[in-house]
Each structure stands twice: as C-alpha cells, then as structure tokens.
C-alpha cells in the first residue's frame, strides 16, 4: 500500500535527514513511527504528502510513484490521504462543520452529500453536537478530534498523523488511539509519528524506529 524504497532526503542546510529508509505498509495496517526529536519523523511524513520531495529512492502509494507526481496532480494525490497534525491546523474563522467539510467542498461534493458525510464523520469522533462551534471554543482533545474528522471525512485509504497526541493528556491520547484502531478495522492504513513511548508500548502494533535518519529494528 505504502512503500519506501531506499529513500534519502537531504536538506541543503542540514545535510542528510533521512538515509536509505525502506519499509512497506500493507493495507489495513497500523504502524507507529518513532524516534528521538529531530530523528526525521516529520520529514518522512512530509515526503508522503509530497510537501517535500526525496533526494534519492522511490516512494509508492499503491502503484503510484510519488517522486514523479507532477505539481498539477498533487491535489488529487493528497485527496487519497488524510493528514492529522499536532497543532490541528484548523481554520479559526470557520465552524467545526465548515472545517470538516473543507476536503469535501474541494473534491466537489454537493451540499447534501457534504452534510451527510460531515455528520457521519463528526458522529464517529463524538462531536456531533458541536458543529456550529468555532475551534477556539473547544478543548485541545476536541480540536484534535475535529482534525481527525476532517482527515477521514473523504474516506481516504491512508491516514497519516504527526504527533497527534503531543498536546493531550494520557487519557485523551488513549481515546484518540482507539479511534485510529477503529479506522484500521475498516481497512484504512494508518501511520502515526509519535515519541510517546509509553503510549506505543501499550498498543500492540508495528513500530518503525528512526535514529538520526536511519531506520533501526
């Protein structure tokens, strides 16, 4: 489903951030990407979103080679992925509903379909009553769940999360992890970057450990 093949990333300022990274995620698999701060986790996720391009190697999503995707095809590629960020990246001047609806509006869904899907998605993360609220009026855990609802509303086959529990207490973190497991159960592939060792060890999932840009086993 997602395949890294000897991927390296070099920034002109900082040199090699990722070095010969290879792994393969199957469809419906959950994996944690872990490692010390500065190990290159965020960089690896940026390569998946094609926010950065790798210096060497190839990345495949299904059979599509991400290193050769043209700029104009990028939007359509990104619609196949749902991204979740540590800082949520919500639009402060839009309601919860509008935030979650954004990927659907972009994909050109009609408003009835948008309404149906947004409600289904908010229901899944337990925020159905808060559609009309603005993000500022929500707690951190709720904002993160809005971010998750937005990431899954388009039903992407791949979900990528960068430190999704970084700002949350352990209880909320566990709740969020449960959500990810629910998505896995319907066949979604999930990749979660996190340095929260205790959380990772509680759960029995594959772990990819980065150390100074190299994958260690």
């Amino acid at each position: 489903m997602l395949k890294f093949d000897n991927v390296s990333k070099r920034y002109p300022e900082t040199g090699d951030v990722l070095h010969n990274v290879s792994f393969h995620l199957q469809q419906g698999e959950i994996a944690f990407l872990t490692g010390h701060s500065g190990a290159g986790k965020t960089t690896l996720l940026k390569l998946i979103a094609v926010m950065e391009r790798c210096t060497r190697g190839e990345i495949f999503l299904d059979s599509q080679c991400l290193s050769h995707v043209k700029e104009r095809q990028l939007p359509f590629l990104r619609r196949k992925m749902g991204f979740i960020y540590q800082d949520y990246k919500l639009l402060a001047d839009r309601t919860v509903f509008d935030n979650v609806a954004l990927p659907l509006a972009i994909a050109g869904f009609g408003h009835l379909e948008i309404k149906r899907r947004v409600r289904a998605s908010l229901d899944k993360v337990g925020l159905l009553g808060k559609e009309r609220k603005f993000p500022q009026a929500l707690s951190g855990g709720e904002q993160q769940r809005v971010g998750i609802a937005r990431a899954v509303v388009n039903k992407p086959p791949l979900i990528v999360a960068d430190e999704p529990t970084g700002n949350l207490d352990p209880e909320l973190s566990a709740e969020i992890m449960l959500l990810f497991e629910q998505f896995q159960q319907v066949g979604v592939t999930v990749l979660i970057a996190s340095h929260d060792i205790s959380l990772i060890s509680q759960m029995n999932h594959r772990v990819l450990k980065l150390d100074h840009g190299q994958l260690v086993l």
Partner: peptide, 13 residues
C-alpha cells in the same frame, strides 16, 4: 495564508 496552506494540504487545486 493559513487557509491557503490547509486547503492545499487537503487537496485543493
């Protein structure tokens, strides 16, 4: 700018 970035990240042309 934030809005533009986020829209790009969720696949806006």
């Amino acid at each position: 700018r934030d809005e533009v970035m986020i829209a790009k990240l969720v696949g806006a042309t």
